[in-house]
């Protein structure tokens, strides 16, 4: 065992030398951005055939546009808007993608004991004015809307029907939809022969396929509110998502954050930003909100119940909490085990 560890260290140490000695990579990079779902999607592809890469990216973007037409709650004609209008009255038939995302959402609601909840939308809307330093909703207003919230009031009727058991329930897929779209985009890229790509949904979810030329994985630097921890992950066939409450005003205006705790119906108060590595974009996107809401103590237990996951909570003061069942989150140049004494 000791020998193996020494050998491994020697091999790792030799990697930079081999990289340095290698000739300049010639693989072309094709990088495109597109504004969809209220955010900027980016896809970067390294491929010997730039035209093929460009076309594959366009197809992946087209898939995300299609999903936006299914899952948008801003577009009145979307399938989700139709569901929100009708599912109080009867079990509404929905497209397979929408059914799958709601099914996944309910699964994460169960995992998190209800902290992750796609039905929290009405409360988010209620707090929007307070986000801009305006009126804080009254307790009565909050109480009234809390009756509209609760994942247990969503009934999934296989294979494709959904019914709400609350007259005022509204689903919002903002905390999982982008991750799902990333996974579908990855499928499209693979189907079009792309092996090495990075798919980014507006910073909230990033998926790494393969690796850039002469690298073993995609190096991703994570959100660091302290500005001196510099957490990094190496993505290869997995995804990372980040969640953070809206920063406090710099000039002392009382404001609310955009992430609402379904337990008390109020904006979450937390000192942490949270990043989670998981196997899929859907998983990391959903878990990022969940783990921010539950905090590190309960969050570590959730991470340990998952395969191939890792999470890091970082405060503005530089406090960190980590948990992993595989992927390594490096802190600056130090792997997390050294920084944290192993988790």
């Amino acid at each position: 065992m000791h020998w193996n560890r020494t050998l491994a260290c020697a091999l790792l140490a030799s990697v930079p030398v081999l990289i340095a000695a290698a000739p300049e990579a010639k693989t072309p990079l094709v990088h495109k951005t597109k504004y969809i779902m209220g955010t900027v999607y980016e896809i970067a592809v390294y491929d010997d055939q730039p035209l093929r890469a460009s076309q594959a990216i366009d197809k992946a973007f087209a898939e995300i546009v299609r999903l936006d037409a299914v899952m948008s709650n801003f577009k009145p004609q979307s399938d989700l808007s139709r569901l929100n209008r009708n599912a109080h009255y009867h079990a509404e038939k929905v497209p397979a993608d929408l059914y799958r995302v709601i099914e996944e959402s309910v699964r994460y609601s169960k995992v998190s004991g209800g902290k992750f909840d796609i039905s929290v939308g009405p409360l988010v809307d209620l707090w929007k004015a307070a986000l801009w330093g305006e009126r804080v909703p009254t307790e009565a207003e909050q109480l009234k809307l809390r009756e509209c919230v609760g994942y247990k009031k969503i009934e999934l009727i296989p294979p494709d029907r959904v019914e709400f058991h609350s007259p005022c329930m509204q689903i919002d897929l903002g905390s999982i939809g982008k991750g799902y779209a990333v996974d579908r985009a990855v499928e499209i890229l693979r189907a079009n022969g792309i092996v090495n790509a990075l798919v980014d949904a507006g910073q909230s979810t990033i998926y790494g396929m393969g690796a850039p030329p002469r690298k073993s994985a995609w190096e991703v630097h994570l959100r660091d509110p302290s500005n001196h921890i510099d957490p990094q992950v190496m993505l290869r066939e997995n995804s990372v998502s980040t969640s953070e409450q809206t920063p406090a005003s710099l000039v002392g205006i009382e404001t609310a954050g955009h992430i609402i705790d379904p337990d008390n119906g109020k904006p979450l108060k937390t000192k942490y930003a949270l990043s989670i590595v998981a196997k899929t974009g859907t998983a990391s996107d959903a878990l990022s909100t969940t783990l921010l809401l539950v905090g590190p103590t309960k969050g570590k237990a959730i991470v340990k119940s998952l395969a191939d996951a890792a999470a890091i909570w970082i405060s503005a003061e530089g406090e960190t909490e980590t948990a992993t069942t595989g992927p390594q989150i490096r802190l600056g140049d130090k792997p997390q085990q050294e920084a944290e004494g192993g988790e």
């Binding site: 959100r223 980040t242 990043s275």
Partner: peptide
């Protein structure tokens, strides 16, 4: 331009995540 957030560096990608930001 409407930019993404990916910063390309030596064939790799340097990425700083900031999920609450507006489109750049």
């Amino acid at each position: 331009e409407l930019r993404g957030w990916l910063v390309f560096k030596k064939d790799g990608i340097l990425q700083v995540s900031s999920p609450t930001s507006q489109p750049w």
